[in-house]
Design a protein around this nucleic acid. Structure first.
Length: 693
DNA sequence: AGCCCTCGAGTTCC
DNA sequence: CTCGAGGGCT
């Protein structure tokens, strides 16, 4: 920890913001710990008066430094919700995952894509930083004025868990940065356990009857996520840095340069790395690493390649889940053989029937696998698998079990894919040209109803803590919940729920508090939660931006059903084409959906997205035409969108600006005919510079 | 018409 | 994680 070991007594008005932030971080952890002890079974550790002193100190600091109030501030928590465990920390920059490649050819393709996006000349070298990909769990360490203010797990990428108290004894990281380090530094890396430490830990556990971990990764995760930080301290964890989040200044202009600076500050950055590599050198590095895999002190699951030039990284930006400037080259997955005992059919929220292979338990890559998806009807045919066959399986990307093919034919009868829903018996049809077969039962199908509710409370949607799949299904089966709005009326059923076996007041109240907290929810989550076909997290966000309110979306979708002009406006939104627009019209055209929607709106208030930065281009529609010399189409689109503009493909009366590159043809002529403003590439570059600056 | 990039929807195991 | 499909280019 950054030297904060107890409640300070300094007068808040005399403190620096960084000192206050550090102390607030400590207070948040400490108060949460006492709350748990108080609400849970453990005996309280401190007197009530001392507890009150902590809370009051927290309040005083927050009053003096309102900008330092934490997302996980004790003063913000509702009642028993504090007993839920770790505090939450919002990442200043999202913690993304990486796109994967599985061969040298795919790695080459990654570089080709980078070249295309940046519009590089063929002879321009693209240099990479390559490093071993450690199999641990990601962690972000935030320093302000050289002091560690918090440590957070990745969580869902946007919000992680506060493990500040748990990293105190982790090897390979520092708690205070040297003089001259930037004001704000977020070092990201992997917390892991070596093979030797893992074996020793399990040996100790075996003697004392403690928990045996399946592999070092699980041991590291289980050890870090201990509510009692003293247990974590006794576990041999280590940290290797691999990147960064928010930085008020960068100590170098290349990936490897920044990492070298981290090493200079005392962080372990790992020995298995290579700077300034061509893609050929990088893949050779990965191949050599794979050969040495068994000799390494810790588990790795591949190599990571990142563009060295940070200015290029910034230009490439990211897609929904991962940056465009980095890729993980995964090693060949471990394989195993087992018997496929049965093929079962699951029903998803859209009614899709998905076949799942039940397998005789087999260990693959350190984990016992018993299930594997078979994706769809065609995949079963392609693989030629039948119940009773001996099959080869692997964990794709070392995670998801996958059936590769038949090793020994078991002689069983071929699997016949059902044409009726196994849950409700309704007809299951396969649309022309589609691969999936769907149950037509709709809301009469129990599986679809509970899967929809499950989607509603899922992580990207309402994300209600304490209300998981099991409880949702239990409440649905008991008739307490039929549609989403009912969740917000559950508090009226408190007594009924408490009468059931296995429901204690503490946990029920915690759940009810979490439900209450979600009466205010982001509009993007709200739209995603509705479960409209073809509308996932990203499209939900796009729609939230475009309409600003749930009612606005509803009205537009209803009007678009009959009005061609509204429909045209809908499909002009980037990412919305005829199919998605049709799905929106269908959804709001269905009286039952509309009722459910209105009912839900009586219970919750969707909040419009925080206003994006206002620039000269916010809300404007831009069209690019002709060939651009300094940047690719893709990059131009990303630039425009970052400034709040929409990029359209064709010029119309609603176009605000046309950027005409060399040899612009009909679009430019049309823009001029319509009186739309036309600028050239240099004019665009200037506009981006001013708007961004 | 065809290609590439994203996204959505399904899945596993801890 | 993987697959298929939608959207937006060329």
């Amino acid at each position: 920890m950054a030297g904060v070991r107890g409640p300070g007594s300094a007068d808040p008005s005399m403190m620096t913001a960084a000192a206050a932030a550090a102390e607030l971080a400590w207070l948040a952890t400490e108060i949460a710990r006492h709350d748990r002890a108080y609400h849970g079974e453990d005996a309280p550790e401190i007197a009530d008066a001392d507890y009150d002193a902590l809370v009051q100190r927290n309040r005083a600091l927050e009053a003096a430094f309102p900008q330092a109030v934490r997302a996980d501030s004790p003063s913000r928590r509702v009642g028993a919700a504090v007993a839920s465990g770790f505090g939450k920390i919002s990442h200043a920059r999202p913690m993304l995952s990486l796109d994967n490649v599985f061969s040298d050819a795919e790695a080459q393709e990654f570089v080709a894509r980078v070249r295309r996006f940046l519009g590089l000349a063929a002879d321009e070298p693209v240099l990479l930083a390559a490093e071993a990909k450690i199999d641990g769990l990601s962690c972000s360490l935030r320093f302000e004025r050289g002091r560690l203010v918090h440590a957070a797990t990745r969580g869902d990428g946007a919000v992680g868990e506060d493990v500040t108290a748990n990293i105190a004894h982790v090897r390979g990281l520092v708690h205070v940065l040297p003089e001259g380090a930037p004001e704000v530094v977020e070092v990201r890396g992997e917390v892991y356990m070596t093979h030797a430490d893992f074996a020793a830990l399990n040996a100790r556990a075996a003697e004392s009857g403690g928990k045996i971990f399946a592999n070092p990764r699980n041991a590291a995760a289980g050890s870090l996520r201990q509510l009692d930080a003293r247990i974590t301290a006794s576990r041999p964890l280590a940290f290797i840095a691999h990147g960064w989040g928010e930085m008020s200044a960068l100590p170098a202009d290349t990936q490897s340069g920044v990492m070298a600076a981290f090493a200079g500050w005392g962080f372990d950055i790992g020995a298995d790395r290579m700077a300034g590599a061509t893609i050929e050198a990088a893949t050779a590095f990965a191949a050599a690493l794979e050969r040495r895999r068994a000799e390494l002190a810790h588990d790795i699951d591949g190599a990571v390649y990142k563009l060295e030039r940070l200015d290029w990284q910034a230009r490439l930006g990211q897609v929904a889940r991962s940056p465009r400037w980095a890729v993980a080259h995964k090693f060949a997955a471990e394989q195993a053989e087992t018997v496929l005992t049965a093929i079962e059919i699951q029903v998803g929220r859209t009614g899709a029937l998905t076949p799942v292979a039940r397998l005789a338990p087999v260990t693959v890559g350190g984990v016992v696998v018993t299930n594997a998806t078979l994706h769809n009807e065609d995949e079963i045919g392609r693989l030629g698998v039948k119940p009773g066959d001996r099959v080869r399986v692997q964990r794709a990307g070392d995670v998801i079990p996958q059936v590769l093919g038949v090793v020994v034919d078991g002689g069983g009868a071929p699997f016949v894919f059902p044409d009726a829903c196994p849950v409700c018996g309704s007809h299951a049809v396969r649309e022309e040209g589609e691969v999936v077969r769907r149950c037509t039962g709709g809301l009469t199908c129990r599986a679809q109803v509970s899967e929809r509710l499950r989607h509603f409370v899922s992580r990207g949607a309402f994300d209600i803590e304490g209300l998981g799949v099991e409880r949702i299904e239990l409440f649905a089966a008991a008739g307490l919940i039929a549609r989403p709005g009912d969740i917000f009326r559950l508090k009226e059923q408190r007594e009924a729920i408490l009468a059931w076996k296995g429901f204690k007041p503490v946990s029920v109240d915690k759940m009810l508090a979490a439900i209450e907290a979600r009466r205010s929810v982001g509009l993007d989550r709200f739209i995603f939660a509705l479960g409209i076909r073809h509308v996932g997290e990203v499209t939900g966000r796009d729609l939230a931006r475009a309409f600003g309110s749930a009612e606005g979306l509803r009205d537009a979708a209803i009007a678009a059903g009959t009005d061609a002009e509204t429909l045209a406006r809908l499909t002009e939104i980037s990412g919305i084409g005829p199919v998605v627009a049709g799905a929106l019209i269908d959804f709001f055209g269905e009286p039952h959906n509309l009722e459910t929607f209105e009912d839900l709106l009586c219970q919750v208030r969707p909040e419009p997205l925080a206003a994006a930065l206002q620039t000269a281009l916010t809300g404007k529609t831009v069209v690019f035409t002709g060939s651009l010399a300094g940047l690719s189409r893709d990059e131009a689109r990303v630039q425009a969108e970052a400034l709040g503009a929409r990029v359209a493909g064709s010029v119309s009366a609603r176009t605000d600006l046309v950027v005409a590159g060399a040899d612009a043809g009909s679009k430019r002529a049309k823009a001029e005919a319509l009186g739309v403003r036309v600028i050239d590439e240099a004019g665009w570059a200037a506009m981006v510079a001013t708007a961004a600056g």
